[in-house]
Design a protein around this nucleic acid. Sequence first.
DNA 1: GTCAACCACTGGCTTGAGCCACCTGAGGTA
DNA 2: TACCTCAGGTGGCTCAAGCCAGTGGTTGAC
Lengths: 257, 257
Amino acid sequence: MTDQVERRPPSRRIADDLRAAIVRGDLVDGDQLPSERELASRYATARNTAREALSILQAEGLAVAQHGRGVFVRLRQPLMRLGRNRYSRRARNETGLSPFRIEVERQGRTPHTECRSVTTVHPPADVAERLGLGDGQEVVCRENWYFADDEPVQVGVTYIPVPVVEGSPLATEKKLGHGSIYQRFEELGYVITHIREEVSSRMPTPEEANGLAMPPGVPVIEVLHTSIDDQGRSFEVTRFVMRADLNGLDYEMPVED
Amino acid sequence: MTDQVERRPPSRRIADDLRAAIVRGDLVDGDQLPSERELASRYATARNTAREALSILQAEGLAVAQHGRGVFVRLRQPLMRLGRNRYSRRARNETGLSPFRIEVERQGRTPHTECRSVTTVHPPADVAERLGLGDGQEVVCRENWYFADDEPVQVGVTYIPVPVVEGSPLATEKKLGHGSIYQRFEELGYVITHIREEVSSRMPTPEEANGLAMPPGVPVIEVLHTSIDDQGRSFEVTRFVMRADLNGLDYEMPVED
DNA sequence: GTCAACCACTGGCTTGAGCCACCTGAGGTA
DNA sequence: TACCTCAGGTGGCTCAAGCCAGTGGTTGAC
């Protein structure tokens, strides 16, 4: 009957004990876990086995190792809740700040955004589909990084059909001046009235993990955002990739009939 | 200069090679990766090292091991795209089917839902806050499981303030009869007109991983859903936990001014 | 008081061995 | 034909040992 429990491999058992201590609250955010060698001797097992146990917790996102220091209970930082208000004209005008900045400052941290590149490319298939573009049609591609306290928290790659932005600074300049990018779109005659956001989640690629300085055991949230104007034109698509331990989404919307 | 590359531990190098083969398309969904022993001999390394490489790929969600059979490139199944239309009255009436069923059937799979329990409990803090409940006020708690081809794909735990459903089958019965749960709410005088969905993502707890039969390296998407009626009353909160490799969200909504 | 060297600790990674559990297919038996 | 057995493959997990590379405190020279 308790075979299931007894059979449980030692590494799992150690992980279970530590996890229980964390869930129970005996160990809290930032606390140091016993060292590999300590666990090994405490459980009369090989160091590798203790090590395996700690790596299980890391894969679950409950702990994070620091070379030369120890393994620590993962600090759960508050999520930034990004809502649809980030596209609201009123929010744009009233504060003059982007919702990203507002949200980061609300947490007492310092926001910072950076446009890394502006290029003209052939869009990925899913982007082309949402923009209603055929083969061979090109888009302007803008890569933006978002930081809080100089820590990268998300990336957004924006794709805009070339005809939409031809001649505008959007097509070539990294700096866009006052107001958000949607200010510029309005000047070009595209007033955002609807958005579509397709949300998924997965583990990061090694490049993403590296670029976003992600601890192990943390997934990314991927949002494929489409901006639609009053004439039903999809004039811009952005693919956001964000650290799931630092970001959340908050949508409030009417139900369609 | 190439120190960074040379320094890369063997297990990482093996993982990199395999990952590259997958990304490149040399290995496709469902293909078997070389066995641990095969990799070890091919790279002139210990079996443990090859094993470590394979476990890196599994943590990234690119591969999945099957005891006694081998390690395989992870089958990427199409996502079920759950949109806000799942709360639409029209969709409810026209098809008589829940959006979950429609979506699953669209994929040629067989849907199936099951209410596991109906209890009365004290709500979690975040739920109580969204329902505007004070300490001590109880809620009816309904636990629903959603399956596709008998494979569990998501769980939803619904919390309803006791006064809202007192005397209704919602408070006690697992089976609710024709139409969705929102049909029942309408009968009680709560017409859903707005929803709020707070989306986050994380690695599953062991219980979730077990209950949802989740492969390693797959996160869950957690959605805290709030239903709001025409009088601004929040009458129901549901916490969805879904496999991120099988589910996605698709929101299309107007931008507020 | 400053600073450098040192040392005792931490995790990172590998080795090569072994035993176990599970899956599959080949071959034989009833 | 239907079933069983068994061998040889697979991954799961552990062991005991070793070396490397960060961290941070102590100690001692200046």
